[in-house]
Design a protein around this nucleic acid. Structure first.
Length: 176
DNA sequence: TGGATGATTGTTTTG
DNA sequence: CAAAACAATCATCCA
């Protein structure tokens, strides 16, 4: 559990879907936050920036998959709300409200996303293979993967479009 | 004009 | 093993 932001309110606040503020943007904090390094991506970067030409982005977690759908609904119910934080908060609360069974489909999708990501990594690794920038990196792992060029190394998604989970997903969660 | 931020949680990544 | 950063989104904001 992360207890960094204070959030003194016990789970009560989370339980009840309290209306989120409409406009959260604009205020930021106090006109003194961007004074960091407005240059690259986020204010995090300390100093070492890795220069990656085109590295595949990380696969969205189940939460993000759920969020994508949730955002649509959220906007439907709150077309006036235009704050990413609003959806994020609402989504987070709702996410915790879902049962593992509900998250299952999302997780399944996220899992698929991850597999796809691995494929992208293989392609990405392949590129790196030709580009010997620094000489380091592992070396045995790519070889085994690249070995087969049937589907794994196939950069394009395989024709097999298995949609969703045909397996049993209803994981009867009895615990909670 | 365009990068940046805010907020959520989960996964990926790196040390 | 653990901590950090980053993944999407989108209106708003500063130089």
């Amino acid at each position: 559990m992360k207890v960094v932001k204070g959030k003194g309110a016990p789970k009560s606040s989370r339980d009840a879907l309290k209306p989120v503020d409409d406009r959260v943007v604009g205020k930021r904090k106090a006109t003194a936050v961007q004074a960091d390094k407005s240059s690259k991506r986020k204010a995090k970067m300390e100093k070492k920036a890795k220069k990656d030409p085109n590295k595949p982005k990380r696969p969205p977690s189940a939460f993000f998959v759920f969020l994508e759908e949730f955002r649509k609904e959220f906007k439907r119910d709150n077309p006036n709300v235009k704050a990413v934080s609003a959806v994020g908060k609402a989504g987070g609360e709702r996410w915790k409200s879902l049962t593992p069974a509900d998250k299952a489909p999302y997780e399944a999708k996220a899992a698929k996303r991850k597999v796809d990501y691995e494929k992208q990594m293989k392609t990405y690794n392949k590129k790196q293979e030709g580009m010997a920038d620094d000489g380091d990196e592992e070396s045995d792992r790519s070889k085994s993967e690249v070995h087969d060029e049937d589907e794994a190394s196939g950069e394009e998604a395989p024709p097999e479009e298995e949609e969703d989970e045909d397996e049993d997903e209803e994981e009867e969660d009895d615990d909670e």
